[in-house]
Design a protein around this nucleic acid. Structure first.
Length: 280
DNA sequence: GACCAGGATTGCT
DNA sequence: AGCAATCATGGT
């Protein structure tokens, strides 16, 4: 089935594709402005046939209405960026929002993948984290139509720590990843069920698990569920970006950041996203 | 060869 | 409750 989508607000697919292309596991074609989105076993192709000011897309490969809802939600086709843009033009982040207008929060293709990738990224530089993620998915996941599908929790739950250790995961990271996969495989942790709960409930539920701290839980809310009002204070990248924006000679302390959150609210996630963009 | 990296846990005051 | 050590290894 093929479906055409037109958006009534400015939207930069170019930015989305560039961000997705940073992950070698994604299938992005920059010259043809297309991306393949894996939804479980179904691959949806999204092709841009519009412009920044008149965004228009062709979606092919859709089998169900639910898949359509998922793709439009993942790529943020279903939520106007206009009120968010207007909101930030009245804040001290105005310059960033003029510069990066039309940049949406896109969510991960898989909630499980989001959690595991976050754990891999903990305390590692981006480039090494991407290497580990790529190795992980290419070893345990499978490839379909040039897209890598994230492995299932069941597969990872059955691994032993030594297997991941040999792939240059630390012992701790290996334990976290296998432990959380077991909790999901055994039905103790249901990520889909969290989607209907409040931010606070999701945070407190996730933090119970070994290996998931505030940063990982907030990252799940932001890039897994697409929640709009998160600002991960623990994130080094955000601290460095504010240091640059405010021309400080050191990273700002939490107490220097938190007063701004009430002005950026209820869209703190966008403040975070645009700050991350500004140091890419 | 330090020092840091899109942190989290553990153990010690 | 709050701090420091620890983790593993690539980047700079």
């Amino acid at each position: 089935m093929t479906q055409t989508v037109e958006l009534p607000f400015n939207y930069s697919l170019e930015d989305v594709l560039n961000r997705l292309a940073l992950d070698p596991l994604n299938s992005v074609d920059l010259s043809n402005q297309t991306v393949k989105v894996p939804l479980d076993e179904t691959i949806i192709t999204v092709e841009s046939i519009g412009t920044f000011y008149e965004p228009k897309f062709i979606l092919t490969g859709l089998e169900t209405k639910e898949q359509y809802e998922r793709v439009t939600s993942i790529l943020h086709f279903n939520r106007s960026l206009e009120p968010i843009q207007k909101h930030f033009l009245n804040t001290n982040l105005q310059s960033l929002f003029l510069k990066y207008e039309g940049t949406p929060i896109i969510t991960d293709f898989s909630l499980y993948g989001n959690i595991i990738k976050s754990i891999i990224h903990q305390q590692l530089n981006l480039s090494f984290a991407r290497t580990l993620t790529e190795r992980f998915v290419q070893t345990f996941g499978k490839s379909k139509e040039e897209v890598w599908l994230f492995p299932s929790p069941e597969i990872i739950a059955s691994l032993d720590v030594e297997t991941l250790r040999q792939m240059q995961f630390s012992t701790r990271k290996s334990e976290y990843i296998i432990g959380i996969s077991k909790a999901i495989a055994e039905g103790d942790l249901n990520l889909d069920a969290l989607a209907t709960k409040s931010d606070d409930v999701v945070l407190s539920e996730l933090i119970k698990y070994r290996g998931i701290g505030p940063w990982t839980a907030e990252s799940f809310l932001l890039f897994g569920l697409g929640r709009e009002n998160l600002f991960p204070l623990a994130d080094i990248g955000l601290q460095n970006s504010l240091k640059k924006l405010w021309d400080l000679d050191r990273k700002p302390m939490n107490s220097e950041i938190t007063p701004h959150l009430s002005f950026w609210s209820p869209f703190n996630s966008y403040a975070a996203l645009y700050l991350w963009k500004n140091i890419e």
